[in-house]
Amino acid sequence: MKLIQEYIEFWEIRYENIFSYLLEHLTIAFVSIIFAIIITVPLAIGMTKMKNERLKQSIFNVANFFQTIPTIALFALLIPIFGIGFTPAVVALFLYALLPLLRNTYAGVESIDQGIVEAAKGMGYSTVQRLAKVELPIAVPYIMSGIRITTIYIISWTTLATVIGAGGLGDLVMAGIGSNNTFMIFTGTALAIILALTVDLIFGIIERRLSVSRG
């Protein structure tokens, strides 16, 4: 009971700082994922229309290359270009988000039965109409699955952004380690886990509803 009381007092004193860390964490993660979606979804759709297989493979290879770089190393590599703080963190996480989003969107559009596409073509649909009214509605559950998985990863990796001064829940954990404050370490870790699980739950519900509506 004494430990619980001490933890409640810790929250009462520091809740403003804690929510500030949480807001920073959310901002970094979601700015990264939004930019990744804006770039990769149209790119992946365009790749499904490409005839040049070598070019498609090259795009996948570039996206895969960034996945092979350790997170902290990529953060460090971006410091000479972008300095420290918010910008290099967003750029690094954006680069990590490219491959899973690209793969899922590409796989979703490629999995569409070509008979359906041909039927839409026979009905006089233009390329844009086929994409908007036929292909994308079918591929949306796949795209959402990619967004869901990638967002969970990005929320976790955002914790490491503290090493380049970007803030977020990683700051809370590192401050706890520096001051040997177990409450701070636990709070930062627990909030990152809760945030990831909450986002996973929300996106999971959206994904299932899209799958049902597709069916």
Score class of each variant (00 low, 15 high):
A139H: 03
G83I: 07
N104V: 06
Q67T: 09
F86H: 12
K121D: 15
D113L: 08
Q129K: 06
A97N: 00
A120Q: 12
I79V: 15
F75I: 15
F75E: 12
I72P: 09
P88Y: 05
Y96M: 04
A120T: 15
A139G: 04
T68F: 05
I69C: 01
A120V: 15
I79G: 13
T87H: 11
E118A: 10
V109P: 08
Q114R: 13
G85Q: 12
P100Y: 00
R103S: 11
S126A: 01
N104I: 00
A139M: 01
L98V: 02
L101Q: 06
Y96H: 09
L93A: 02
V140Q: 07
P88V: 05
E135I: 14
M123S: 07
A73R: 11
A120C: 15
V91T: 04
V117W: 13
V91Q: 01
Q114D: 14
L95F: 09
V140A: 01
P88C: 04
I138Y: 10
R130Y: 06
T87K: 14
A73T: 15
A119W: 07
I116L: 15
G85P: 04
R103F: 06
I112R: 06
F75R: 14
V134P: 04
Y106W: 03
M123H: 07
E110Y: 11
T68C: 12
A107I: 11
V134R: 01
V140C: 04
